[in-house]
Write a protein that binds this DNA or RNA. Structure first.
Lengths: 117, 117
DNA sequence: GCGCTACTTGTCGATAACGTCAAGTTAGTA
DNA sequence: TACTAACTTGACGTTATCGACAAGTAGCGC
């Protein structure tokens, strides 16, 4: 189980390092404090090594990508631009009913601004 | 090293489970396929166990939160999956004034739900 | 008191990831 | 050819996490 996400991780790690940040394994190794051979092991799609809790964090930090992207849980490597916006944070804590109401109201405001939908 | 993020993980896991999803450890255990004692170990702020690659994914999937949130890399537990949520999409198209108003209203609804902070 | 649910804490052996190291390959350049 | 850089692959012992299990605590209704 989860064999496929291991492969996705390998591909995304390499892709993030090379295409996105233009780093060598040695450079990423220095940024993360990991040995470069560990990076190589991780990037091998047929390999078996998976990063630990800490190492996943270090890789994501050094590459400035989300861990969700590396883990294949999200297709975008950048977080939501508004991820820390108070509004988004608050909305999540609303009851379902209130959230529904907020959604309706926001729709109304939208329609007001853009006559014809 | 990374001792603090282990503590953050413990807090956010428990918070996500209880406050956000209203699950017992046993219920989360069933959703993830993990033993409930493992959940308990993870949620202990003074504990030492950290989730593996696969178990982190399972927890995030079951709780519908980002791994970045659980790992303390993002302050918001919602990520890309909900970017398609109508509410979030709509909010981005609001005028600044309307967005401000929406935010205020949402805050009011929050306070109503949680009497006293 | 009893029983029940939710959770905690610690131990066990097994498995998996760890860092380190050695020995390779592959591509480019002199 | 020789040399270097970037990377691969496999093996080693160490350490951490694994699931499973036992025994515990705390609270709540009866």
């Amino acid at each position: 189980m989860e064999e496929s996400s291991r492969k996705v991780f390998a591909e995304r790690l390499r892709d993030s390092r090379e295409r996105l940040r233009g780093l060598t394994q040695a450079q990423l190794a220095e940024k993360t404090g990991l040995p470069s051979t560990s990076i190589s092991h991780f990037e091998n799609p047929e390999g078996t090594r998976k990063p630990s809790f800490d190492n996943l964090r270090r890789l994501a930090n050094a590459l400035e990508v989300t861990t969700d992207y590396l883990l294949g849980r999200s297709d975008d490597h950048v977080g939501m631009p508004v991820a820390n916006d108070a509004l988004y944070r608050d909305v999540q804590n609303l009851t379902d009913a209130d959230k529904e109401f907020a959604q309706l109201m926001i729709k109304k405001m939208l329609e007001k601004n853009q006559p014809k939908g």
